[in-house]
Amino acid sequence: MNLKRTLFFSLPLALFSMYRPVAAQDVAAGKALYAQCIACHATDANNGVGPGLKDLVGRKAGTAAGFRFSRAMKTSNVTWTEKTLDAYLAEPQKVVPGNVMPFSGMPDAAQRANLVAYLATLK
């Protein structure tokens, strides 16, 4: 009986102690991470090596005016949302196989969340 009682009280405590709240997205940290992107992508609508990122969230992939996208990007049928951007930043070739952006991915989920939060501010 003591074992049942111990488990009854200690299991919820153990589960609660494992809980870690997700950190809030940090736009300032995302802006700092954007330094990895700035060589190719502008924060406005101007295209460079890569397309401009103004109004990226909500845009269909491969449709930024005036930019010559790869066939893979143009036919990807991806719309950039926080979720698709996170997945793409984690593994670009998995989300859009054959894309030509020379970026292997950003493995850290918190960094991706911060960068996506910053990209969402580019209006």
Rank of each mutant, 00 (worst) to 15 (best):
N114W: 02
T43C: 02
L53G: 08
T81I: 08
A61N: 08
V100I: 15
A110H: 07
P97K: 01
V78I: 12
V49R: 08
C40N: 06
D108M: 13
A23D: 03
K60V: 08
M1E: 02
Q93S: 10
N47P: 13
A42E: 13
Q36A: 12
N2L: 15
M1Q: 06
V49F: 11
R5N: 11
F9Y: 13
A90Y: 04
L7N: 04
G48N: 07
P12I: 05
G98R: 04
N99F: 14
L7G: 09
L3E: 09
L11E: 08
V49E: 01
K60I: 05
A35Y: 07
M106Q: 11
R68K: 14
H41E: 07
G30W: 04
K60R: 13
P12Y: 09
A90V: 05
L56W: 02
Q25V: 06
G48S: 12
Y34I: 02
A32V: 13
A35N: 13
Q36I: 10
N47V: 08
D108K: 15
Y34D: 11
G58Q: 12
P21D: 01
D26L: 00
K123R: 14
A24D: 03
Y118L: 05
N2G: 14
L115E: 03
L56K: 07
G50R: 10
A28V: 00
Q36C: 02
D26R: 04
Q25L: 04
T121W: 04
F103V: 14
R20C: 03
L3F: 06
T43N: 09
A109M: 03
T81R: 11
F69N: 10
D108N: 15
S70C: 12
A90H: 10
W80Y: 04
N114A: 02
F16S: 12
F103W: 14
L53Q: 04
M1C: 08
T63A: 01
P107T: 03
T81G: 12
T75C: 01
Y19I: 13
A24V: 06
I38R: 14
T75E: 11
F8Q: 15
P21K: 14
V116N: 09
V49S: 05
F8H: 11
A87E: 06
D55W: 00
G66A: 09
V27C: 00
L13N: 07
A42Y: 10
P97G: 03
L115Q: 01
P102Q: 08
P107R: 11
N99P: 03
A35L: 13
A117T: 06
Y118E: 02
